[in-house]
Structures are given as structure tokens and as C-alpha cells.
Design a protein around this nucleic acid. Structure first.
Length: 190
DNA sequence: ATTTTCAAT
């Protein structure tokens, strides 16, 4: 079995979510990336079925794998059928690195039946031109790349966190940080 | 207006 072939988990703990997804400037020590996803099978204009889950990057040297590649290897081997149309949505704590962006762009070019929307909490190495180019290549392959806002964080909390019925508690600066990241992303993608 | 990051010490 391919060591990269990991199945997603169903949910994160609240502490993991708040720590990993916070869009703070002082986002130190977020040496992990978490990726929540939904996969919807689309027929005409109505969704017929969907599934969801959470991937984390694999840090073990044996299975080392960025979260995006964990998703792709799972998706290729599990629900993906060339006869169906998919809407895939990601909520990631960091945006993709150039290598993953290239691989995802290739994936999208090959599977025109897959539509991808990426919401990212923070921009990974946003000042680096290679990382910027990676985001543009995704956009050029038709992926929609967005910054996670209040409603997206709330959606993740409600759908990917073992929240025990606790409501989502936004942190200080969630909206101003979102707006700043939005401006950055728009500049990168234009 | 602002962060140093899918670890390596």
C-alpha cells in the first residue's frame, strides 16, 4: 500500500482548530497544515451526494506528505470517477506551496470534471514570488482561491470540529486580518 | 499597519 494513501479523519479538536486556523499575524509555530474538505457530486444544478473530512500534513519521514497531496492521493483512489462532476472545496490553514500548487493545477487540467474552490486562513510565504506564482497557476487552471472569512471559519467549526454544541468563538482581529489578507491575495492574483 | 510558515533544533 502506498504510504501516502491515508484516509481523512472526521473532525479536529477545538484547540487544534483555533490554534491552526487563526488568521493572526503572530501565527508562530503553526508548523502544520490542516485541510478540511467537502466533495460534492453535481448533477445538473443539484448536488446529489457529498462527503467531507480532514487531512493533516504527514510529518513522519516515511510518509511525509503535504496535506494537499494527501487529499489528491485519497481522492484519486476513492471517490473520483471520470463520469461524474465534482465540486471540491478546501478550507486550509496555510495556502499551498509551489510544488503542491503545480501538482493541483496539473490535476485540474487533467480532470476537467473537477471544480476546486480553496479557502485559506493564511497565505504561506506570501512575499515569495514562487509562492505567488503557485497561487496564480491554480487560479489560471480554474481553481477559485479565496481567503477564509468569518462565515468560513464558522462553517469549519460547525462541520469539522468536535464542538460539543459550543458556538464558534471568533478571535480578536478576525475581520481586519481577513481584509488585509484579501488585499494581499488580490494583488497576487491580478 | 501587521506574520517568518506543511520544522529543525
Amino acid at each position: 500500500m502506498n504510504p501516502q494513501m491515508r484516509n481523512p479523519v472526521e473532525a479536529m479538536y477545538p484547540g487544534t482548530f483555533y490554534f491552526q486556523f487563526k488568521n493572526l499575524w503572530e501565527a508562530n509555530n503553526r508548523n502544520e497544515t490542516w485541510l478540511c474538505f467537502t466533495v460534492e457530486v453535481i448533477k445538473q444544478r443539484s448536488t446529489v451526494s457529498w462527503e467531507r473530512g480532514v487531512f493533516q500534513n504527514q510529518v513522519d519521514p516515511e510518509t511525509h506528505c503535504h496535506a494537499e497531496r494527501c487529499f489528491l492521493s485519497w481522492f484519486r483512489d476513492n471517490p473520483l470517477s471520470p463520469k461524474k462532476n465534482y465540486q471540491v472545496t478546501w478550507y486550509t490553514s496555510w495556502s499551498p506551496c509551489p510544488e503542491c500548487a503545480g501538482e493541483v493545477a496539473e490535476f485540474l487540467a487533467r480532470y476537467s470534471n473537477v471544480q476546486l474552490t480553496i479557502y485559506t486562513a493564511r497565505l504561506y510565504y506570501f512575499w515569495d514570488t514562487d509562492y505567488q506564482e503557485g497561487l496564480r497557476s491554480l487560479s489560471e487552471e480554474g481553481a477559485s482561491v479565496e481567503i477564509m472569512g468569518y462565515e468560513d471559519f464558522k462553517y469549519c467549526w460547525e462541520n469539522f470540529v468536535c464542538d460539543d454544541g459550543e458556538p464558534f468563538k471568533p478571535w480578536k482581529g478576525i475581520n481586519t486580518n481577513f481584509r488585509f489578507l484579501e488585499r494581499h491575495l488580490r494583488k497576487i492574483l491580478q
